[in-house]
């Protein structure tokens, strides 16, 4: 299912608008602030990074965590739980393979993915989660380990700003590498067009799930890739392999759409079975849905 923004207040989540904003940091902030500004009706209202809950003191708790004001009023010992205790490691995996360089509506899938990654990183950082970043094509191009340090977000955003498109994609490889490296359960967000061998991709994601990670997959596809609107006889050149195919789009459109729908359906079906949040994103649509999906997963992780 493809979901997009509907409210006029979300215009700052429009990728075309975002593309015109200067730095990646500013873009991320704009996206998140715009997103949060529209959350007044959101079920995530009240989610706080400063205070979570009170609980009764138990033997062994740090005495410094006892809220003495509550004790003065109620004569009972309660321990104040802060948000730092609920922080998780969030890993943003960005596909920078050649196929992500396609874009028909002003920006490429890679640009859209980088905006989304930046926004997610910004949002994670705002929630005091540790943010990790990995860019990959057929190998890992950039990897920043998850960290909640104040300056880490800037590093992530800097990397995002400097990421270049690579060659062929091999989504499964970084997934396996990350799963092997996970030392703590966390959230893994995969941003990719997943135009790869589904079997391998799903196996990699299953590996992550096996290691206890909550996985959110955003399959980013261009509007052209979803609708195949071409009409004239076209010689299609593969962005990754440079293979060429001469085809009459009007004649092959139905077959192509069946193929892409089959691919999407397979990802959706099989990933759901392994507990992965799968979301198909039309890169011509605003980014709010992607952020919403992340927060939904984040809430389940509590």
């Amino acid at each position: 299912m493809v979901v997009g923004a509907t409210g006029g207040e979300l215009r700052f989540l429009d990728p075309a608008v975002i593309a015109r904003i200067g730095s990646i940091e500013l873009k991320a902030r704009t996206i998140v602030e715009g997103f949060l500004a529209g959350l007044h009706r959101s079920p995530f209202k009240g989610f706080s990074v400063e205070f979570a809950e009170y609980r009764q003191y138990l033997l062994g708790d740090d005495l410094s965590t006892i809220d003495w004001k509550v004790y003065a009023r109620s004569d009972r010992h309660y321990v104040k739980k802060f948000e730092e205790e609920t922080n998780v490691d969030c890993h943003v995996l960005l596909d920078v393979s050649g196929s992500m360089g396609y874009g028909s509506t002003g920006g490429t899938k890679a640009e859209y993915a980088s905006y989304l990654a930046a926004a997610l990183a910004y949002l994670m950082n705002r929630q005091r989660d540790a943010v990790g970043f990995m860019a990959f094509d057929d190998d890992i191009v950039t990897h920043l380990a998850a960290s909640a340090r104040p300056g880490h977000l800037r590093s992530v955003l800097l990397e995002l700003d400097q990421v270049k498109l690579g060659s062929r994609s091999n989504v499964a490889k970084p997934l396996h590498q990350l799963a092997d490296a996970l030392v703590k359960r966390g959230i893994v967000v995969l941003l990719s067009d997943l135009l790869d061998e589904p079997e391998q991709v799903i196996r990699g994601l299953r590996h992550l799930r096996f290691r206890g990670a909550d996985v959110v997959v955003f399959q980013l596809l261009d509007h052209d890739e979803l609708t195949f609107p071409f009409e004239r006889v076209t010689r299609f050149r593969d962005l990754e392999t440079a293979d060429e195919v001469l085809a009459a789009p009007l004649e092959i459109r139905d077959h192509y759409l069946r193929e892409i729908n089959t691919l999407v359906s397979r990802y959706e079906r099989e990933l759901r079975l392994v507990g992965v949040d799968y979301h198909l994103v039309d890169t011509s649509k605003p980014l709010d849905f992607a952020l919403m999906s992340y927060l939904s997963t984040r809430s389940r992780h509590q």
Binding site: M100, K109, L195, D224, E225, R232, R235, L239, D243, V245
Partner: peptide, 8 residues
């Protein structure tokens, strides 16, 4: 027409 495309 020549066109670069991802899902070739």
């Amino acid at each position: 027409v020549r066109r670069a495309f991802a899902a070739v």
